[in-house]
Computed example of a mutant assay.
Amino acid sequence: MTPSAPVRVLLADDEPLIRAGVRAILAGDPGIEVVAEAGDGAEAVELARRHRPDVALLDIRMPRVDGLAAGAEIRRLLPAVAVVILTTFGEDEYIAKAIDGGATGFLLKSGDPRELTTGIRAAAEGAAYLSPRIARRVIDTMGRTVRTSRAAERVAVLTPREREVLALIGEGISNADIARRLNLVEGTVKTHVSAILTRLAVRNRVQAAILAYEAGIVG
């Protein structure tokens, strides 16, 4: 994807009405283009292989292959494709599995429509985006195995600059925007992000964002 090109999205949901609603919202953003639609997870994987979108927006519950399995398979086959999961409050138990499968975003079907475009853009830029209304629930889904005090101890190993970067990761901000916020070059931000993941022993930006919430450095 070039800077001027629209974000290419694969949309997968087994409910035609939901697909139509999401498509209509995305159509209102000239910087986003829906390149394919699927009614189940198996079809989503096949269309991802064919169209190679920037972002795969997947419902969790779909026939044949659900969104979790489809997202994990898309990430395995096409690591450059960001996976964003559409969820509801009643599906918290699936979120940890989605993270393990490489999902980088979580959006509520009942959320503010503006979150949909914001989350897709963030995912396309390499950021982790958690819908503000489910951020705390994501933490709870992870089992709270690391309590606030323990999370604060883990974050304490970071330098002040790394803590600043981690806080912005927790807000779902891309490397480019972090660079602008902190008056750094993007390459330096990437170095900081890599160091943060290593120091905190987390696998991806989503887990880093969750730890930032746990430690209390993100509201």
Rank of each mutant, 00 (worst) to 15 (best):
R76P: 02
D54H: 04
I74R: 05
R154K: 15
D54K: 01
A103F: 08
I25W: 05
I169E: 00
A56P: 05
H192A: 12
L197I: 10
R150W: 10
M62Q: 10
E37D: 03
D112R: 13
I18Y: 10
P113I: 02
A167Y: 07
E214F: 06
E73L: 03
A72Y: 02
A80K: 11
A152P: 07
D13Q: 04
A176Y: 12
L158V: 15
I85E: 00
E37M: 05
G101E: 00
A12N: 04
R137A: 14
M1V: 02
E214R: 13
V55S: 01
L17Q: 13
I60R: 07
A98L: 07
E162Q: 15
R163K: 15
L86T: 07
L116Y: 12
I217P: 07
G39E: 04
G31L: 03
A98E: 02
E162R: 15
N204I: 08
R23K: 15
A44W: 06
L182C: 05
I60P: 03
A152F: 12
S131N: 14
T117H: 04
I210R: 09
V9F: 01
T2D: 02
L166K: 12
A152N: 09
R61P: 09
V83D: 00
G21W: 12
R76M: 01
L158Y: 15
E93P: 10
M62K: 13
T87D: 04
E186Q: 15
P160C: 13
V7R: 01
S149M: 11
L86V: 11
V165C: 06
P3Y: 04
P6R: 07
T191S: 15
A5Y: 03
T88M: 08
A123Q: 05
A20S: 15
A208G: 08
L130H: 10
S110I: 11
L166C: 09
G39M: 03
E214T: 06
